[in-house]
Nucleic acid binder design. Structure first.
Lengths: 203, 203
DNA sequence: CATAATTTTATACACTTGCATAATAATGAT
DNA sequence: ATCATTATTATGCAAGTGTATAAAATTATG
């Protein structure tokens, strides 16, 4: 029988992608090593050549998902040559745009979330990758107020961060799962408006 | 061997509860008919006496979960002898309190969410039970403004509802998964404050 | 081009899964 | 008490599961 080898060795990444595609389409229950192999266009035995077993494959897939999500969110914040208000707006804009806003992303997140409460290794992966969103938001919020000559106490900053984080998460889920409900920049605008209202601050 | 029959016939409900408990603790993957039977303290064969199969059991469990969630949310809104602002506050308060705010509730919700995008029957159950939260929020928001002598156009009402819905969902998830991060009424207060800010309305 | 190393397939195995069915126990009716 | 009905267990089966392993195909190396 003809094999399926491709130039370069990206099999490992292909198998990870196939895993995420399989989970997206078939759910955790429908994700077997054989189906993942089908998605990748190889036979199931190959998985054990690149991974010690299904568990390691799933962990690698979860880590890859988190990396995809957070890399987009981080880029928006990392440019600290601009005012904190702008960075805050960029963060909201990035988090409420494709590819973070997408059915696939939310579905994968929802599939993995319960696993991180059952499998210790998965929870470690999450905790390591998790850029505590509040840890991003708190300095941005504090500095945005400082830029307006207002010094907030820590408790106030924390509470604002929780609220802003909540509105972003809520809009993320709503926008991701609601088919074509939202126009191009509608979701971003709703997020920025709500954040400005919560902070009583022009951003 | 001794059997396990109990007075009254609540086996069906017991099996549904056992299913939710099993999903909560073991995840969808770990939820087999045998494990559910263990959780219920019966043998696996009994499940097929009350349900046509595992699929029907899972659907019944999902319907039960949605019913539990929405019954609490609805009660808070149904008292239309009070001002819309109060009903809105009651709705937020109920949605951001136990038992809706609880790790179990969010974990169960997350487990089922992807299934509703794979299994048509599950999506029907969700759509039937789903009290479109926006359909609750929109009239409450419209009437709250009317009570202040302000008539909002439909688009504005819709956008407000989306934002309020988002902050509630976001706080729900954050509060449910964040261990002991929040004091007794802290989450409710954060939700009401944020909503008031978004609407620029005292509620 | 021959041979070693790497990558991929093919196959088999032990175990789990959902489901079926017969046997058993408990309850209700007369 | 006897018998029919309902509820529960016990057991088995076919299909699917993750994993192991050997064979085959491909690539790299001299």
């Amino acid at each position: 029988m003809s094999t399926n080898r491709r130039e370069g060795n990206n099999r490992r990444q292909e198998l990870i992608d196939a895993t995420l595609n399989c989970i997206e389409n078939e759910g955790l229950q429908g994700t077997t090593v054989r189906k993942v192999a089908d998605y990748a266009g190889v036979t199931n035995g190959l998985i054990r050549f690149y991974f010690s077993g299904k568990d390691e494959l799933m962990r690698a897939a979860y880590a890859a998902l988190l990396d995809q999500i957070y890399s987009h969110a981080r880029i928006a914040v990392d440019d600290d040559t601009v005012k904190p208000q702008v960075r805050l707006r960029n963060f909201i804009s990035a988090t409420l745009s494709y590819p973070i806003v997408a059915p696939r992303t939310v579905l994968l997140w929802a599939n993995f979330l319960p696993v991180t409460y059952i499998d210790t290794e998965m929870s470690i992966i999450r905790n390591e990758a998790y850029v505590e969103t509040t840890n991003i938001l708190e300095p941005l919020i504090r500095d945005s107020f400082l830029d307006n000559g207002i010094a907030l106490d820590d408790k106030k900053v924390k509470n604002y961060a929780i609220q802003v984080n909540a509105i972003i998460d809520g809009l993320w889920i709503e926008g991701s799962l609601a088919g074509n409900k939202f126009q191009r920049n509608e979701l971003v605008n709703l997020g920025i408006e709500a954040t400005a209202a919560i902070l009583s601050l022009k951003i």
